[in-house]
Amino acid sequence: MESVDGAVRTLPSIGRLSRGLPFGRPHGQFGLSPSGRLLPPALRSQENADPRRTAFLLHKQWTLYSVTPLYRFSNTRLRDYARLLSAFIAAEKQKGLAVEIGVELDIKVAVSSIPDLKGSDQDQAAILVQLSLRSPASSKNSEEKLIWLGWFCCVSGDDLSENVPEDFTCLPLFLANGAESYTSIVGSWFQKTFDCCFRRLAISPLNLSWMAAMWTGCKVDKTASAMELVFSVPHLPQPLDISYAIHPEDAKALWDTVQKTPGEITQEEVDVFMDCLYSHFHRHFKIHLSATKLVKVSTAVASAHCDGIIKVRF
């Protein structure tokens, strides 16, 4: 599942980005091809996509997990899954292991498929799990309150799904928004039911630099927020964090002169882009950012933290 990390780069393309957004195709251990990567349309199915159906993923903070292929998962049984998961959560609550919530409250589970969310035609449609609270004490048509969201998706193109044996479904990326206790209950139900395994997904500095470059290249309006890189300096007696924020227009102007290969982004271009920013920094402060650790990238389009937390704004 190493290449899932690389697949994370494609996430913002799920939003309402312009068609030209670079779309990564992970190869090899770090999700990188040695030469570069093609820039196919952001999302093939996006042409007919209803933005309202995918709007839920914007402006939320998502924690990333990698998931091994699901055994005997069927898209036609989503209703059953919702019922079973709901029973499982109720049982966990009874055990007292679950979240602190009022006894009167009842959790409703919905599992649905979102065909708009996938990287390529071969990919599985994304699966959305929603937990909402409803209180039986209040009137029947009372509003349900969404308390937790999680979705499985496939953004890695053909590479991963192709080699999956029969009876297995490949949805290698899981994103959760809401209390961790719910993530853990839902996760353990999926692990038990589909014999899969969840793991927190860290984003490597290399992939963060890819995101920085790709997102910088996206067209955004003039009032856009700065492109911010956050570095942490390891192994000092006193920890040090450095935030390096660049005016979005200036960052884009730099990237536009660096990005030369038509229809493609190469590792070399990403390296040159970061090296240019590092040397500008070094000229002022005499500090080698290349020796520090890039921990967070934040642009007007999206932000990503090395701990595997992302937020898509656009």
């Binding site: 700065a226 300096v233 000092l236 007696p237 006193q238 920890p239 040090l240 964090d241 450095i242 935030s243 390096y244 924020a245 660049i246 005016h247 200036d250 102007a253 730099l254 002169t257 660096v258 040159v272 240019c276 500008h280 920094f281 002022h284 402060f285």
Partner: peptide, 23 residues
């Protein structure tokens, strides 16, 4: 052959640490 601009490159750099000067 990158960015040859006559305008300044606008950045905001922040250093933070529990004990900045020591770090």
């Amino acid at each position: 052959g990158v960015l040859d601009k006559k305008e300044p490159f606008r950045c905001l750099v922040k250093f933070s640490s529990p004990h900045l000067l020591e770090s």
